[in-house]
Amino acid sequence: MRIDLNKLKRLAIITAIVVIPIICVNLINVSLTKNSQPVNQEASNPNPVANTSIKKTKPQENVSIGFFAEFRMERERVRSKQIELLREIANNQTNTQKVRDAAAMRLVQVADTVEKEMQAETLIRSKGYQDCAVIVKNDQATIVLPVRSLDEAHISEITGLTSLTTGLPKNRITIAPRENYR
């Protein structure tokens, strides 16, 4: 078996493009989470978001956290399968160059989407929200928050942050409140 250095270099670059942003965003997320204070410290929290309609009772918070954790795990599982399939296509020498290049480009797009979602989630949580999930698909984004309702100021703030990180216009961003059910 002969190894083509150009193809090996290209594969290394694509892998770096996919992996490095994910690692960086995770490191930023860990450092922000480590330095943040819990949302339930209402008395000392000057953030108006913590004192609005996003307050939840303890049992509901646990249900909500479970939902977001499960959602992230499932999203990661699906993405891992997708990335694995795309890598197989990109590395399969029996595929045409056009197909391999398309798979490589899709890998880069997946990495970009992961980075945008993680950045948006981190920024939204930094504003005092207990948790959230951001789903970026094609030219729109959906944000799921553990709240019953939001006022216009909070909607504008969240869509602005998401627009900033995703590059999408505010009118392509939807916020979906998630009420907790037992």
Score class of each variant (00 low, 15 high):
V18K: 02
V19W: 09
N45H: 00
A120S: 07
V18E: 05
L32Y: 13
T174S: 07
N95H: 05
A153R: 07
E152M: 11
Y129C: 01
R2G: 12
D139R: 08
V114A: 14
I143W: 01
V114W: 14
R125S: 03
Q60H: 09
I124K: 00
M105E: 13
V30Y: 11
N138W: 06
S64V: 03
S44F: 15
V30G: 05
K55C: 01
L32I: 15
V99G: 02
Q41T: 13
S126G: 11
T174C: 04
R125W: 04
D112K: 07
M1V: 15
E88K: 12
A104H: 06
N51P: 08
N92P: 00
D131M: 01
I175Q: 04
I14Q: 06
L168T: 02
N35D: 14
R79W: 10
S31G: 03
V30T: 13
L85K: 15
P59A: 00
R2S: 13
E42D: 12
V134C: 05
I175P: 03
Q60M: 06
R178G: 05
N62G: 14
R72Y: 07
A90S: 06
N62L: 15
I143T: 03
S53H: 10
S80A: 12
V147H: 06
V134G: 02
R178W: 10
P46L: 05
G160I: 03
L27T: 10
Q60V: 06
V49C: 04
A141E: 01
T15P: 08
S31N: 02
R182V: 15
V99D: 09
F71N: 14
N47Y: 00
I89Q: 05
N180R: 10
T57L: 07
P48E: 04
A90D: 07
F71Y: 12
T166W: 01
K34D: 10
R182T: 14
P169V: 01
L8K: 09
P48N: 04
S44T: 09
A133M: 00
V114D: 14
P59E: 06
R79F: 12
R75F: 10
Q93V: 13
P169E: 05
I158C: 01
T162D: 02
V19F: 12
A103W: 02
T96E: 06
L164R: 08
E74F: 15
D131G: 04
M73Q: 11
K58R: 04
L32H: 13
A104W: 01
E70V: 11
S126I: 08
N51W: 11
P177T: 06
K98D: 11
M105F: 14
Q93R: 11
T165N: 05
L168Q: 02
K58F: 09
A12M: 11
E76I: 12
L164V: 11
T33Q: 01
L11W: 10
N171K: 08
E84S: 12
T57P: 02
N6V: 08
S149C: 10
K55W: 05
L164G: 11
E117L: 02
R182A: 14
T113C: 08
K9H: 15
